[in-house]
């Protein structure tokens, strides 16, 4: 009976020590440094979010001019094709008018 009691007391003691250690894990440490950090974080969140990442590096390296050149070249080719069609049509229209 006493041995049983001893085992029971031992188990209760060990288990309660676990509970005690769990409490320590959950509790945040009241540090001066921590409170400063949380205050700064709250300030940052209440103000504007961080600047959206734009392509400034791309632009500063001058690569944007390559993009623009490509787009303008493609577009001028399309315009050139339209001008070619326009001139060809004008010739055909003039020919049919001469026939009349």
């Amino acid at each position: 009976m006493q041995k049983m009691n001893k085992i029971i007391y031992l188990m209760v003691f060990v288990l309660s020590s676990f509970i005690g250690s769990a409490q320590e894990i959950n509790k945040p440490e009241p540090n001066v440094k921590d409170t400063l950090l949380t205050n700064l974080k709250n300030n940052a969140l209440s103000e504007a979010q961080p600047e959206p990442a734009m392509a400034d590096a791309f632009r500063s390296e001058g690569k944007i001019y390559v993009v623009i050149a490509v787009l303008v070249i493609i577009f001028l080719c399309i315009i050139g094709y339209l001008i070619y069609l326009d001139v060809k049509l004008r010739k055909i229209e003039n020919n049919t008018k001469e026939k009349l």
């Binding site: 959206p52 990442a53 734009m54 392509a55 944007i64 623009i68 787009l71 303008v72 577009f75 001028l76």
Partner: peptide
Amino acid sequence: AALIIVYTLIWGMLGPVPKLNILYE
């Protein structure tokens, strides 16, 4: 028409735009 679109191609890429999340450039 051709001149205006070339202008929008050039200045559309170089000009300033509002900086917004999700959209970026």
